[in-house]
Design a protein around this nucleic acid. Structure first.
Length: 679
DNA sequence: AGTAAAAGGTTTTTT
DNA sequence: ACCTTTTACT
């Protein structure tokens, strides 16, 4: 399987001894090379338990392991320590965390939990001067995580990245303090903590023990690691540890998460005596597509020199398609997707890529209308939608009756219960107490609730009681899927007040129960769910289910490392890609350019770049306010490398003004008639 | 006091 | 569409 390695790839696979940096351009067989290297280590008899493979997503780790398994025996491959920095940190901290004063049973806050906790401490601290609008809790969490990831002072972060929140510096200080107290009090770590504690442990008294665990450390997507992560790699190295980092500085797109390409540029300084190998032959795209990608990249000032080339000389030229507006773009993309399918390109082999999650909104409507199945990656997570969090909170209460976040979420869904009642009931039930019996006390009738919530509380008590397995011994209770079925009754009672599309959300709960079917323990189900969230939002009429062929919609960030035969890029307009947020920021603009580069290099055979002339001013626009856009500044200089098409450039509703006048006249007439009724 | 409903705003990307 | 603030109501 790996016999077809080219010269540079073989070098990267067989190199031993000095630290190794593999600069792997897009589509140059990076994954294959990394997998082959691991396989060759195992063939040499290296103990798989002593190989650490750090990847950017869990999906990437799983794919790598399965590729290795195809060559070496699968049993060996699955023993490799593979995963994200965060999941490996989680694993190591369970074993070594006590050296840092961590309980081995700490729990991990995912980003949604972090946001909730920020919201909670904010209301508890009670802000809100009149007239001054406080940043949303998501923003508060963003500020926090950026500050921690970059290890920068709050004031500097506010000034450079969140200038519109600069007024609230002092409030934020208080909130962050309270947030940290809460975390420590409940033995809970957020994403940043996982990395910080891991790094701290490498310099602690158990540092040597940790370093003795691994002979080989391999890091994928090295261009998207941040300073803390680079410190961790260095901290995990003993003099005999062999490091291999793979990455492409031209594809660095996580600067907003404090990733820094300096880690690649300074690899030789961090790891003295390092060897560098560059992979330049692209096996993915046709030459006409690469020409565009190279042309875009050439506009960037610095990167490690490389010029991608492909032996795939033929192929159609990329298409640059100008549309009147977003609606026309959606229609065109839907039609060309179907057209490609007619020509034999399965929907699975096609993808639509865009800068921001909401850029696909119009297209999603169009696809739904035409019954074209699709799955969307990136953007809003399934797990982050309110109703799924509601159900997970119920499970978490059962799992850990002292989980205050879960209690708050569940109790606040009851009629007539607000923050004040939640706090009072939590006190009455002793949620914060050490005995972990608060749920039992609730089921047994403790806690005073307003009469409006009577029926709901009865149902809550009943279903929680069933899930606790009061009939039998504790722990011999129902399987997770059955517990969800039981709790569904409570959701049915509570969702109609909370959400306007309650039926669809109940259906999601059923789907979650189906997912839970393969788990036998509730704690395992919850843990897997936070570490490996299903990345699709399923609440629209999208994929009926897995069996069919489906089209991929994805943010460019989520498309990293993937490839398709045919790729559509949406909204290649200044303001969208590059995002207007980055205008005026040099580093930001460079990152936007790399984002475009990543999008273009996902395509194997067919590439279409779409450019709608006008787009809405506001994100969730109800109105028709729009602006006329310029074509993306990254595409303009390489325009000549495209075949150009213009579709329906004429305004579909040219006599807009006349229609408005008629509308006004009719409205006047109706109003006059109505007024006559009471005058 | 504390909750519900109505009004008014809203900066992307994600482990 | 969702979140925060304001106001109205019990």
């Amino acid at each position: 399987m790996f016999d077809a390695l080219n010269e540079q790839q073989s070098l990267a696979v067989s190199h031993r001894g000095s630290p190794l940096l593999v600069v792997a351009g897009a589509g140059t067989g990076k994954t294959k090379t990394l997998a082959a290297r691991v396989a060759s280590l195992l063939d040499e008899g290296v103990d798989p338990n002593r190989v650490l493979l750090l990847t950017f997503t869990r999906r990437a780790a799983a794919e790598m392991v399965s590729r290795v398994g195809a060559t070496s025996t699968e049993r060996l491959a699955t023993q490799v320590w593979g995963g994200t920095f965060h999941s490996i940190a989680n694993r190591l901290l369970r074993n070594f965390g006590q050296a840092a004063g961590l309980s081995p049973s700490f729990t991990v806050l995912d980003s949604a939990d972090t946001v909730d906790l920020m919201g909670l401490v904010r209301t508890e601290e009670g802000f809100g001067e009149r007239g001054k609008r406080f940043p949303r809790k998501e923003t508060v969490a963003n500020i926090y995580s950026r500050m921690v990831a970059t290890q920068a002072k709050l004031d500097d972060v506010l000034e450079t990245d969140f200038p519109w929140c600069a007024d609230h510096g002092d409030d934020l200080r208080v909130i962050f303090g309270a947030y940290t107290n809460q975390k420590r009090a409940h033995e809970v770590l957020d994403y940043e903590d996982l990395l910080l504690f891991w790094r701290a442990l490498t310099t602690s008294r158990v540092g040597d023990k940790m370093r003795q665990l691994f002979d080989h450390i391999l890091v994928d997507e090295y261009q998207d690691t941040n300073t803390v992560q680079a410190d961790i790699i260095r901290g995990m190295c003993s003099p005999t540890t062999q490091v291999c980092a793979v990455g492409d500085d031209a594809q660095a797109i996580y600067g907003f998460r404090a990733a820094t390409v300096d880690n690649m540029w300074n690899f030789g300084d961090h790891f003295p005596g390092a060897t560098q190998i560059t992979l330049e032959q692209n096996y993915r795209s046709t030459m006409p597509i690469l020409a565009v990608a190279n042309g875009v990249l050439a506009q960037s000032d610095v990167h490690i020199a490389k010029e991608l080339w492909s032996s795939r000389q033929g192929g159609t030229r990329p298409v640059l398609c100008t549309h009147y507006d977003e609606g026309a773009q959606s229609t065109f993309v839907a039609e060309s997707v179907l057209d490609a399918r007619e020509r034999g390109v399965d929907l699975q082999a096609q993808a639509v890529l865009f800068r921001a999650g909401h850029h696909s909104a119009g297209l999603e409507l169009e696809l739904t209308r035409r019954d074209i199945p699709f799955v969307k990656f990136g953007g809003l997570k399934y797990l982050e939608s309110g109703h799924v969090k509601d159900l997970l909170a119920l499970l978490r209460m059962l799992e850990n009756p002292s989980d205050q976040l879960a209690w708050h979420r569940v109790l606040a869904t009851l009629d007539g219960v607000g923050p004040a009642t939640v706090r009072r009931v939590c006190d009455e039930l002793g949620v914060a107490s050490e005995d972990h019996d608060a749920v039992t006390r609730l089921v047994d009738g403790a806690g005073r609730f307003p009469t409006a919530a009577e029926a709901q509380v009865a149902e809550l008590r009943r279903s929680m009681g069933v899930c606790l397995g009061h009939a039998g011994p504790v722990g011999a209770s129902l399987a997770p899927a059955q517990q969800i079925d039981v709790l569904r009754g409570f959701c049915e009672l509570v969702f109609p007040n909370r959400y306007d599309n309650a039926a669809a959300r109940i259906a999601d709960i059923d789907e979650l129960a189906a997912t839970a079917g393969s788990y036998s323990s509730r704690s395992q189900f919850l843990a897997e769910l936070t570490l490996d969230p299903p990345g699709k939002t399923s609440d629209r009429a999208g994929p009926p289910h897995l069996d069919d062929d489906w089209l991929t919609l994805s943010t460019i960030h989520s498309a990293k490392g993937l490839e398709w035969n045919a790729v559509h890029v949406l909204h290649a307009a200044d303001g969208n890609l590059p995002s207007d947020m980055a205008l005026g920021d040099k580093a930001g603009m460079a990152e936007e350019l790399r984002l475009m580069y990543v999008a273009l290099t996902r395509a194997k055979d067919e590439l279409t770049v779409n450019f709608p002339l006008r787009f809405h001013v506001h994100r969730h626009a109800n109105d028709d306010r729009h602006v006329y856009a310029q074509i993306s500044r990254f595409i303009e200089p390489v325009r000549h490398l495209f075949d150009e098409q213009a579709v329906d450039l004429d305004a579909p509703l040219e006599p807009h003004v006349d229609l408005d006048l008629v509308g006004a006249a009719v409205t006047d007439e109706v109003d006059a008639m109505l007024t006559a009724l009471w005058d």
